[in-house]
Every structure is written in structure tokens, then in C-alpha cells.
Nucleic acid binder design. Structure first.
Lengths: 247, 247
DNA sequence: GCCAAAATCCCATATTATGAGAATTTTGGG
DNA sequence: CCCAAAATTCTCATAATATGGGATTTTGGC
């Protein structure tokens, strides 16, 4: 009644999740409440434009247009391009996974990653959303946001004050270390990627199992991560960054 | 007049290309002919849903939702998952780039790739569209399509008959080799990835510079590519019918 | 080549998308 | 910090078009 038709169209894409990657028209009608002709009209449009594709069994899945557009996003993203060599170097020097998490105003997404062994590769692939207030990669970004934005994100959390105390230290140190916050048994070490104005654009993080972490020279790790972050920040400065305010 | 509003909404995303990754509202109005309020309504919706993001200078670029959705596509795509180790192995054994090209009914896209040296990595990244009737990867798919589909694609090309002759051999051999067809100086060797019914789903291809190719045992290359393709086909077949239920 | 199920078509109706112009907010310069 | 200029959003009357019930065609399984 009150939602526009474009919104209803895009809602179809919202159905797809890691848990549910294929939908039949009947299931969509059931879930979304659209009439049969309307749903099929939307499906036709999304299929013709490549956002959806037909799967065996009369079901639908996400289509090639998505793949094509992500290629363009990668091409347009200076942080991704500049991060990759540094991620490769970090992954070469330290165990675990090195990855970059980008701040999109209301969302954190891993946008690039590298790791020595292929098995770890899947743990943080490009496109996987991250929690906003847990883990080293998130906290180091949070720590560099203006207070009012921090508060909006921490919101009604019971542990908001505890987190705020940590963030203060993180901001001073330029590095955040987090134990077991996102994945049990994993330690993350992250540093912020900032624009000229000191606003956070992204963060770079190295994560690994606790036992490996404890066998390391953690000061060297912190330094390496901090240095990588600064290198990306400096390169990114040319591209400027005002993405933060409006989003 | 005759195009629906959803179509107009999605047309905004069509503006973005490798050549033009950022658009201002004024440029969009100029190009698309939408009125100011209408365009801004569309932009607000696309920004709120994350398909677009604000860039410095009041311009717009593709947004994080695209990245998220591509992650889901990768997660839902059995061919990508199963190809990667084989691509890595091929890239390890042969120079150049090994990649998988997927057939989406009317489009060919590279969906995964690997190469020994990082410099080559960019030549066929995931998401880059490929021509339908040029190059080894495309021809080997074309060769396994039903005739009527082949004809639809070859269509009005002057060299259609010549291509048809080649395709016949390709189909018999199960391998296609193409010199200089997509990129000057590059030779590609490809084999088809087929479903149980023998319909082409994708192809796997190894491409390299002519001089390197000529220094190789090309029979071994052909065999390796053919074997890799068959391995992926077989794995895809096991999963066939199952990715329908759980996916 | 048959049948059931799925997808599309038809068309009257009401919903809602649209655009001119104005009001508002944001931005950048001094 | 203030102001002017530009960018964005709002209001609202109108026309356009999205919608859904039901008929029709197409598809896929045997």
C-alpha cells in the first residue's frame, strides 16, 4: 500500500541469503504477498536484466549482472586495488588471514583478503558482512568515528560503556586487538585506513588462531599492520574521502 | 512512455561501466531524461538499499549491496567452488592465466581465475564479460550448444560458416585452441564443462603469450585442460539435483 | 503426444508514479 | 561564522501505469 513498486522489485533480491540461495515463485508469493502476475512481471524484469537467473526445478537464483557489477565495484574502488599487494605481503609474513574491511556508512564488509593457506581463504571472503561493534577490524573503525556516530551504533547495548573505554585506547594506539569476538579461538589485530580528515574509510586486519598468535612477536605484528594501514591511507588520500558523512 | 518504472530504476545501474564509474545527478538526468524529482527518488531508493553510494563531489558510484550479492552468488555457485583448486593446479603447472568462463544463456562471464604471477591476475578477473563467439573459452561452449542456439549467436556474422566448421572439430576434440582472438599475442586452450545432458555450463581455459605456448608440450596442455574440465563436470553432476533442494 | 502445473496474457480499475515549481537543506567560498 | 549558490527534497494535481482476477498458453514429466 505505502511502498513503491521499485522497492517491491528490489525486495525480491533481499530474499536471497547465505542460508537460502534459491527460491521458487510460489515461495516468493507466499513470502512477499505479491499477486501472481505481479510477481512474474518482476521476475521477468529481473531475469531479463540478469539480476536473477533460472535454476533447475523452476527456481530462481542471483544472476550474472551481480557478478558483472561487482567487477565494476572492484575496478572503481581504490582501496581494494591498493590493498591487495599489502595483504599478500602480510599473509606471507604472518599466519592466518589478512583482510580489509570497508565502512559503508552503515555496514561493514570485507572487500579483499589474502592468506597463505587456501583453507583459510574462505573464512573472510569479499562481500561477507561483519558485525559493527565486534572484532578488531570493526572496533578500530568505530574508534575513529565521531562520538555521535559511535553512540548511534553502540545504542542500547548493555556493554556500551565498556566498549567506549576500549575505543579510547584503540584510538590512541592506532591498533586494536580482539580475542574471540567474532569467531571463537581467533585473535584479530587491526589498524584504521583514514582519509585526510582523519575519518575512517576502512581497516586492515590480520586474524589467526590463538595459539599461533601467542607464538608471535605481537609488537612486530602490530607495527606491520599499522604500517600497512598507513600506506593504504596515504595512497587513498589522492582519491579523497567524503563517503562517510552522508551515507 | 512504454517502459515500466522498475526498468527505469534499473537503467540507472546500466550507466556504470569500466569507462565511467561515477555519475552526477545532472549527468544522469541528461543521459536518461528523467525529471529531477523522479531521478532523486530513484537515487534515494538505490542508495538506501545500498546499490549506489555517494562519492565525493556529489557523484554516485555502485554500492556495497553489489559486493554482498556477489558473495552470495559465489556461495551459491558450485562451479566456482569446485574449479578453484583445479585452476590453482593448472596455474601452477602452466604459465599464463587459468580461468573459468560461465555461460548464462546470453552472456559469458569469467567467474574464477588463477595465475602464477600476480601481474597476469588482472587480465581475466571475475565478472569481466567475454565475447560470445571469439576465443577458445567461448568457442568450446558454443560448440556444445544446440544448432539453433549457435545460429542465433553467430547470426549475421560474415564469418559464420568458417566458425561453424571450426566448431565441428572442437566438438569432436573436446578442446578448442584459439590464437589472438580475444587479446593480441595470446593463445587460449579451453575445454567444456558439461552437465549430465551434455549441455555446456561453462568452460575452463588456460591462456598465455604465443612464445610461451610454442615452448610447451601442447598435447600435455590440452590433456590437462580436458581433464580439469571433466573433473569439474563430474563434481557438478554429483551435486546436480542436490543444489536445487538445499541451496 | 498426452496431461497437469507453471507461466503469461487480457483488461477494467484504482493506485501511484510523475513533474512543475517552490521550499528546504547542504555545500563551498570568503 | 556567515552568506550565496547549488543540491536535494517537498507539495500536490494529474495522468499514467501497476495491479490482480480470471482466461489462456506454454512447459515439462511420463
Amino acid at each position: 500500500m505505502s511502498r513503491g513498486s521499485g522497492e517491491r522489485l528490489l525486495s525480491i533480491l533481499d530474499l536471497f541469503s547465505e542460508e537460502r540461495l534459491a527460491w521458487s515463485p510460489a515461495e516468493m508469493m507466499d513470502r512477499l504477498g505479491y499477486s501472481r502476475p505481479t510477481l512474474y512481471r518482476y521476475l521477468k524484469l529481473l531475469k531479463d536484466t540478469g539480476f536473477l537467473t533460472s535454476l533447475p526445478g523452476g527456481r530462481f537464483g542471483l544472476g550474472p549482472r551481480v557478478v558483472e557489477l561487482d567487477f565494476l565495484v572492484r575496478a572503481s574502488d581504490p582501496i581494494v586495488a591498493r590493498s591487495q599487494p599489502l595483504l599478500d605481503a602480510l599473509a606471507d609474513r604472518f599466519p592466518g588471514t589478512a583482510f580489509v574491511v570497508q565502512w559503508y556508512g552503515d555496514k561493514l564488509l570485507c572487500v579483499a583478503s589474502a592468506s597463505r593457506d587456501a583453507t583459510a581463504r574462505t573464512s573472510y571472503p569479499r562481500g561477507r558482512p561483519m558485525p559493527l561493534a565486534a572484532g578488531a577490524a570493526a572496533k578500530v573503525i568505530l574508534a575513529h568515528l565521531p562520538k555521535r556516530r559511535q553512540d548511534a551504533i553502540l545504542g542500547a547495548r548493555a556493554d556500551a560503556d565498556a566498549i567506549r573505554a576500549v575505543l579510547k585506547d584503540v584510538r590512541r594506539d592506532g591498533v586494536s586487538t580482539a580475542f574471540w569476538e567474532v569467531t571463537p579461538g581467533i585473535v584479530g589485530t587491526a589498524a584504521p585506513i583514514l582519509d585526510t580528515g582523519g575519518h575512517p574509510l576502512a581497516s586492515i586486519c590480520v586474524s589467526m588462531g590463538t595459539e599461533r598468535y601467542e607464538a608471535l612477536d605481537t609488537t612486530a605484528l602490530k607495527d606491520a599492520v599499522r604500517r600497512a594501514a598507513r600506506a593504504i591511507s596515504e595512497k587513498a588520500i589522492e582519491a579523497d574521502g567524503k563517503e562517510i558523512e552522508d551515507a
